[in-house]
Amino acid sequence: MQYRKLGKTGFNVSEIALGTWQVGGRWGEPFNDANAAQIINQAIDAGVNFIDTADVYSDGLSEAAVAKVVKARTEEVYIATKCGRQINPHLSEGYTPESVTAYVEASLRNMRLETLDLIQLHCPPTAVYNRPEIFETFDRLQEQGKIRNLGVSVELVDEALQAMQYPNVKTIQVIFNMFRLKPAQELFEKARQQDVGIIVRVPLASGLLTGKMSHATTFGAQDHRHFNRHGEAFDKGETFSGVDYELGLEAVEALKKLFPGQEPLAAWALRWVLMFPEVSTVIPGASRPEQVTSNVAASQLPALSPEQMQGVQQIYDQYIKEQVHAQW
């Protein structure tokens, strides 16, 4: 495993980490504590020392499962969690110093921790980025010893740029993959200049970039890939990176021709993300332990050639850019 600096946090984190949205069961399935523990232990065994969770993942069960395993291990493992998505309706007005403080304290209780390594605002409405009192609240929480660092998970590149105006924002979590190139063009260099860590989520475009899906693939009724394709429940950019499913399948076939050979497309999609030095870590999810092994192995692949990097750009320009680039 290779390690990279997570911006101003000073943490050296595994370049392949673990996202836990679907840990313990696939999207829409019941949470399974034993499966979650297997996945998290498998990740740590493989050298992963950064795990991303959130208070809304399986109503706090993901947070609790992560903390339980980490506390049972001897390795130093950083836990990042997120808050704010419990606000309903999810509007800027629901973000107050009192509410975010309460969410931080609830996560501490849920994980039985005294301090959070990294707390991230969980894709707040755009208006929140213009409210200094919300960001200043986390300075107070740090002074009280309840958090070590603040980050923000964003939907829009413009939101990331707004967030970085606050000196206490040390990390940005953003969707970045072969179908979402805008962050590399408009965000990464500015983040590097300010020493803000970049955490990449949705690196496989909700599974599209595994290359294993087809026109016949079906998804359960509680799977966001079934019910949120047009943003019915939350930002549609979280589902297949906002790419039309049928169009995405066409682009995937073009990518397969660019990466022939034995390794699955998913591995090359993760390796592609790691080609960008501004990326601190990428957090693919896993619903089975063997997916962790596959994800981690991607970091050992050889670097992509200039021709392959250009090929990804050309496929994006041909199939994807018109549909997604301006939206996020």
Rank of each mutant, 00 (worst) to 15 (best):
I134M: 00
M309H: 03
Q2N: 12
P302Q: 07
I79Q: 07
I44Y: 09
G10V: 09
Q310K: 04
F227R: 09
M164C: 11
Y129F: 15
I39D: 09
K190G: 01
F176L: 05
A286I: 13
E29I: 00
S280C: 14
R140F: 08
G10K: 00
S153M: 01
D235V: 09
E159D: 15
G220T: 05
F135M: 04
A80V: 10
A34Q: 04
V252H: 08
V128N: 09
R148H: 02
E290W: 10
I134G: 00
R109G: 13
A65C: 15
P306L: 10
F135P: 07
V77I: 11
A102Y: 09
T81F: 08
T281P: 05
F240K: 11
V48D: 03
L208I: 07
R140A: 14
R26G: 14
T281K: 01
R225Q: 03
R140G: 02
V273C: 14
Q262C: 02
E98N: 03
A266Y: 08
K190C: 05
V100A: 10
A266G: 07
V169L: 10
R192K: 09
S280E: 14
A297G: 12
V100M: 12
Q313M: 04
G207H: 06
Y129M: 15
K5N: 11
A46Y: 01
R229E: 12
V69T: 01
V202Q: 05
Q144Y: 01
I283R: 12
L187A: 12
E114R: 00
L18I: 02
S58W: 08
N110T: 15
P97F: 14
R131E: 14
E143T: 09
L270D: 00
G84P: 01
M213P: 01
P260C: 07
H224K: 08
I44C: 05
M1H: 13
I134E: 02
P302H: 08
Q310W: 01
G151M: 15
F227W: 13
G242Y: 13
T115K: 05
N110P: 14
K146R: 04
I44D: 03
G94Y: 07
